[in-house]
């Protein structure tokens, strides 16, 4: 089941974050999204050609795949458009039926919905998204992946340290342990 979908703008500002309504502690997902952005930045930079580096074909794709080795509880996928709009998808690790192709399709549909949404002249690009139709669409994506299951928060605990005022990208270290 999709636990969380995050859409970030070009400056890494959050545009829309939707978390499955069954989650007990949504704050953890906010931090997961932010730390995932670090990885997205890294993966979307063109790498210098070194022996053993990722092949050119992978670099050119907008879909970034699994962002970091999956923990036992969640898998985090990323996508970065050419306009540096980023999307993060967090799914339950126990959902083994979700294939890579399906994830790709989800991102593509999200991207289409996003590009339709920005055609609205009353929406300022880069601002938090308030479009009802886009919200509904993302809700439907979260709901589409099966009946809501209660996620047991004791399955994982999250340790993080962050600066007092503003959690910056570098100021968060996220550890997942079961």
């Amino acid at each position: 089941m999709a636990l969380c979908i995050g859409v970030m703008g070009a400056e890494n500002q959050p545009l829309l974050i939707k978390i499955s309504p069954n989650i007990q502690d949504p704050i953890k997902f906010h931090f997961m999204l932010h730390s995932a952005l670090d990885v997205v930045e890294e993966k979307s930079q063109p790498l210098p050609k070194t022996p053993g580096s990722i092949s050119g074909a992978d670099l050119r794709e907008l879909y970034l795949g699994l962002l970091y080795p999956s923990s036992d509880e969640v898998r985090v996928y990323g996508y970065c458009a050419n306009t540096r709009m980023k999307m993060i998808l967090i799914v339950e690790a126990s959902n083994t039926t979700l294939r890579d192709n399906e994830i790709r399709t989800m991102f593509r549909r999200l991207h289409v919905a996003y590009s339709n949404m920005i055609m609205n002249p009353f929406y300022d690009v880069g601002q938090p998204i308030s479009s009802k139709s886009f919200h509904d669409f993302v809700d439907s994506m979260i709901a589409a992946f099966g009946v809501g299951k209660l996620v047991n928060p004791t399955l994982y605990s999250v340790e993080m340290e962050y600066f007092e005022d503003v959690p910056t990208l570098t100021g968060i270290r996220l550890l997942l342990r079961s």
């Binding site: 339709n116 949404m117 055609m119 609205n120 002249p121 009353f122 929406y123």
Partner: peptide, 10 residues
């Protein structure tokens, strides 16, 4: 105006 969504004040 296919993709236009009106804010309430307009």
């Amino acid at each position: 105006g296919d993709f236009v969504e009106f804010p309430d004040n307009l």
